[in-house]
């Protein structure tokens, strides 16, 4: 029985459950799901629907973080992808032609892959620290997105495109299926092929991985490409949901929320083991938190303070030094070598 506490999903799931429970008491109709015109409506459905882009970005981010990296540019890629798709559609004579929608989606996805590859090349071949390498696109990407939209909010009137983010399939929002598909692909790729093993291995010990014959650069490149792809699809969902693209605000702070979701999900920022399902739960926690705060009528921006404490708490729990400080409280003398916890003898 005691084992259940040790499972990596235990804490994220408990937090999510606690949040939901709180909502149940606070507003009993939180869990009510109603049916209108063949669509399901309700707070839970909303959480899934509005949380979809974040879950996607966080899935991509998980793999990047697992290689001891970080991708700050996802928010910008979200904006660029949505912008280019809406621009392509808005140029069309008839915005409901299926071919046009497909073309625009393909262009957006292709561009996201390219941007992901750009990040990946800077990190792997260029040997630039991930934070710094992806900072470039984080800054420039916002500008590119605004360039694409011309600084305006591009509105499209395409029912087919809107379906992506706000349509529903089998009574559920279509975006949920997109997320599920990406999650399943990511799970298959990482758990049914050796890719997951290689990612964890490279993130945990790059030089030992190289010595074992793993192409570390290839692995790193591919996770950034995948992360770009996820951000691109998230951008499509987001822009399709509101049938418009806003280069300035779309995907703002997504990088931070995604990193937070990854960390809550149990993946360490020091690389190594990663938990895709944990990340999904992490993203759901963030989304539920936002919804909850909306519901109880506190200004939604206060979520930020809560997030700050969550980030800090999770990182402190992961920090060895944090525990070491408590352990060595009563040690009066501090030897630098011993404080570092170096125990090798040579």
């Amino acid at each position: 029985m005691g084992k259940i506490y040790k499972h990596h999903l235990f804490w994220p799931l408990s937090v999510l459950a606690a949040l939901l429970l709180f909502n149940l008491f606070y507003s009993p109709d939180f869990f009510s799901i109603t049916m209108h015109d063949g669509h399901l409506y309700g707070s839970l459905i909303d959480i899934l629907n509005f949380g979809a882009p974040l879950i996607l970005v966080a899935i991509g981010m998980t793999l990047v973080v697992a290689t001891k990296g970080i991708d700050l540019s996802v928010g910008s890629i979200v904006a660029i992808s949505g912008a280019i798709a809406c621009l392509t559609i808005s140029k069309g004579a008839d915005q409901n032609v299926m071919g046009l929608i497909l073309t625009s989606v393909l262009i957006a996805v292709g561009l996201s892959l390219f941007l992901g590859a750009w990040n990946g090349l800077l990190v792997s071949v260029g040997g630039i620290q991930p934070i710094i390498a992806t900072l470039i696109l984080m800054v420039a990407g916002r500008g590119i997105a605004q360039l694409v939209t011309g600084g305006q909010i591009i509105t499209v009137t395409s029912a087919k495109y809107a379906y992506l983010g706000s349509g529903s399939l089998a009574t559920l929002p279509f975006s949920i299926f997109v997320v599920a598909a990406v999650l399943v692909i990511a799970l298959l790729l990482t758990r049914k092929t050796a890719l997951g093993l290689f990612i964890e291995s490279v993130g945990c010990n790059p030089s030992a991985s190289l010595m074992s014959g793993i192409r570390a650069n290839g692995v790193i490149l591919s996770v950034y490409v995948f992360c770009g792809l996820c951000a691109g699809i998230a951008g499509l969902l987001l822009s399709s949901n509101v049938s418009s693209a806003d280069g300035n605000n779309a995907g703002l702070w997504y990088e931070l929320d995604a990193i937070l979701a990854v960390v809550i999900g149990g993946t360490s920022l020091n690389g190594g083991r990663f938990y895709l399902t944990g990340t999904v739960i992490g993203a759901l926690i963030i989304q539920t938190l936002t919804t909850t705060i909306y519901m109880i009528g506190v200004p939604p921006e206060i979520t930020l303070v809560v997030k700050a404490f969550v980030v800090l708490a999770v990182c402190l729990i992961q920090s060895d030094s944090f525990w070491a400080v408590f352990a060595s409280r009563w040690k009066t003398r501090h030897y630098p070598g011993e404080k570092e916890g170096i125990h090798h003898v040579s």
């Binding site: 420039a140 990407g141 500008g143 590119i144 605004q146 360039l147 011309g150």
Partner: peptide, 10 residues
């Protein structure tokens, strides 16, 4: 337009 600032800075 102002977004060129960001692109140039990037």
């Amino acid at each position: 337009s102002s977004w060129w600032t960001k692109i140039v800075i990037g």
